[in-house]
Nucleic acid binder design. Structure first.
Length: 578
RNA sequence: GGGCCUGUAGCUCAAUUGGUUAGAGCAGAGCGCUCAUAACGCUUUGGUUGGGGGUUCGAGUCCCUCCGGGCCUACCA
């Protein structure tokens, strides 16, 4: 039994995430975790909320709440929604946890001891009215290059020229609108990533089979311009992890906190500690310390492409630089973006479907299936209501749901709600004469192998295609075998055909559970087969339900999305979130 | 500006990394079935692989060029 550590990029705290965020890391990570657990592996699947930084402070202020209280509330909200989507985290932690405070300060001390941190004095824009230093993009003004009047301090959205906030004409704070700004001197800690460039590059170069998206972004940062740059890891904020060198004060750094991108990945480790402290596990070090049992752990990270530089460079620099035997990531699965109906999902403009709204209108399985079968693996992909409706109705309702319905109802009407006796199926006896059953049998063997291979490789779309093809094969079998006409002349043979077909239901349920866990669970419950495990072989799996085994005809597994619903939702989610 | 990715059937995507006649699903058309959620199955229409040029016995795949889309560019996270 192999051991797998899986982390999803941690979602930012300042609001409910949209479907694009969900499909870019948490959902595929959950699919993989469920699959590996299903196959009997030991899995630790961690996620958390990313709670520090300027946007969190501003969101809290807007909500009129202390930032700690705001974050606690939003964590609870995000946690509940994650449950709603059946995201099977072993623990959903918080980057603001005590554990992360201590660990982040510990890493900073180790890096300082290794001479990988330097102090830099610099000037930054300070807003007196806001009482805070402002990140460049929170300053707006007129672009000195093109005259655009809402250019941000980091870049002009109109002419794309990179700017410095002092270049702006008539700069003002986007928070208060105040023009009372000044450049103030401040001191910050920088992680000397440039010192580690060769080490990081060698590590990247020796990773095998990583997605092009992952390695190309990493190489770009390593070699662009003057190479990998040192990175500021502290900020002048109130809310965050206080800058300390381990447990000691850091002279000159009073009142400052670590930058979120320094402490957020460390939360992956701290989260395992939270998991133990919450009483859910016994030993976090055997997952994270290669000197304490994590040698045989396979660690896989999931994230959107915007997170790649931090996971391929900054976080490994932190780990390698510490000189301690922490587990490094083995495989980084990164995703492109999901667009919404011809444009981007937009949190700020309320465009698209947000996770809470999605669950209000349809069960999690609908979203899980469509999103995962259209996950943006090779390029950006697009959500449209037409595609969603047609994908869900066709795949889930017509192909899978209706299969379950037609088999169980036919059985009930001819034999009762019990697996019928008589004849032999191709799974029970390779010498059976049911040619169509033999066809199905071989079809499923091939498809199952392909499905497992794709899931092992985290080729999600391809895996979804194979799974769907197995559902289709069940319908093909029924059409070939036609038990409704067999029954008229040879009820025993029809009984064998139906027994064979009934066995497909728990088989499908187990294989489909990573994609559609709720429907899979209902299928198993109704078939009184909740003890079914991942199939070792197809013939073994298809003889699970023996003659005489009682079951219940399931309710409709997936109601179809009507045209009226689709049009209604299309309108409702086109504009502003209410 | 620079870099990376991308462009394949009406739509969404494949194509074992240069190797037979470019394949699936959806949508469309025809036929069949009547167990089932008006569901299912079979057959079928549909392509100058964005344009042009080149390398090669052979190019969707490699090179050049043009056109379109996207992302990143280090102080949002």
């Amino acid at each position: 039994m192999a051991r797998h550590l899986i982390t999803s990029a941690i979602p930012y705290i300042n609001g409910i995430k949209h479907l694009g965020n969900l499909v870019g890391s948490q959902l595929p990570a959950d699919l993989y975790a469920r699959y590996l657990r299903g196959r009997g592996n030991e899995v630790l699947f961690l996620c958390a909320t990313d709670e520090h930084g300027t946007p969190a402070e501003l969101a809290a202020a807007k909500a009129g709440k202390p930032v700690a209280e705001y974050c606690a509330e939003m964590h609870a909200v995000q946690s509940e929604i994650a449950d709603g989507f059946r995201l099977s985290f072993d623990h959903f932690g918080r980057s603001s946890s005590d554990q992360n405070h201590r660990l982040t300060q510990h890493f900073a001390a180790r890096l300082a001891d290794a001479d990988l941190i330097r102090e830099v004095s610099e000037t930054q824009m300070y807003s007196k009215a806001d009482g805070r230093f402002l990140p460049d993009r929170y300053i707006e003004g007129t672009c000195p290059n093109c005259g655009f009047d809402s250019a941000r301090g980091d870049q002009c959205d109109n002419c794309t020229k990179q700017l410095d906030p002092v270049d702006l004409i008539n700069p003002h704070s986007t928070i208060s609108g105040s023009t009372d700004l000044e450049m103030r001197e401040t001191k910050h800690l920088y992680l000397r990533q440039s010192q580690m460039k060769d080490q990081l590059e060698e590590w990247i170069d020796t990773r095998e089979g990583w997605p092009v998206l992952t390695t190309s972004i990493a190489k770009k940062w390593l070699n662009d311009g003057d190479g990998l740059q040192d990175r500021g890891i502290t900020r002048d904020l109130d809310w965050g992890i206080p800058v300390k060198r381990g447990e000691s004060d850091w002279p000159g750094m009073e009142g400052k906190v670590f930058y979120v991108w320094f402490d957020a990945p460390i939360e992956y480790i701290a989260c395992a500690q939270e998991w133990v402290d919450a009483g859910k596990g016994a030993d976090w070090e055997r997952w994270w310390r290669t000197d304490k049992g994590a040698d045989d752990v396979t660690y896989t990270q999931f994230m959107g492409k915007d997170n790649v530089p931090f996971h391929t460079l900054s976080f490994p620099a932190t780990i390698l630089g510490s000189g301690e035997p922490w587990k490094l990531v083995d495989y980084i699965k990164s995703f492109n973006y999901l667009n919404y109906d011809g444009g981007q999902f937009s949190t700020s403009r309320g465009r698209g479907v947000f996770m809470d709204q999605a669950l209000e209108i349809l069960p999690a399985d609908y979203w899980r299936w469509w999103l995962l079968s259209h996950v943006p693996e090779t390029s950006d992909s697009e959500f449209t209501w037409e595609s969603f409706q047609s994908g869900v109705n066709k795949d889930l309702a017509d192909v899978l749901g209706n299969f379950v319905s037609r088999v169980t109802k036919f059985c009930r009407s001819k034999f009762g709600e019990v697996v019928p006796e008589g004849g032999t199926t191709a799974a029970e006896d390779r010498n059976s004469t049911d040619a169509s059953a033999h066809w199905l049998f071989h079809e499923l063997q091939e498809r199952l192998e392909a499905y497992e291979n794709h899931m092992d490789q985290i080729e999600i779309r391809k895996a979804a295609n194979e799974l769907r093809a197995m559902w289709v094969a069940g319908n093909e079998y029924l059409q070939k075998a036609a038990p409704w006409s067999t029954f008229k002349t040879d009820p025993e043979a029809a009984a064998a055909q139906i027994r064979f077909a009934l066995n497909l239901i728990p088989f499908y349920a187990v294989l489909s559970a990573p994609f559609i866990p709720d429907a899979a669970a209902r299928m198993l419950v109704d078939m009184k087969a909740d003890d079914c495990a991942w199939p070792a072989t197809v013939d073994e799996a298809l003889t699970q339900l023996k003659a005489g085994h009682a079951f219940t005809v399931p309710d409709v597994l997936f109601a179809k999305i009507t045209d009226e619903q689709r049009e209604d939702w299309q309108q409702r989610f086109a504009g502003k979130r209410d």
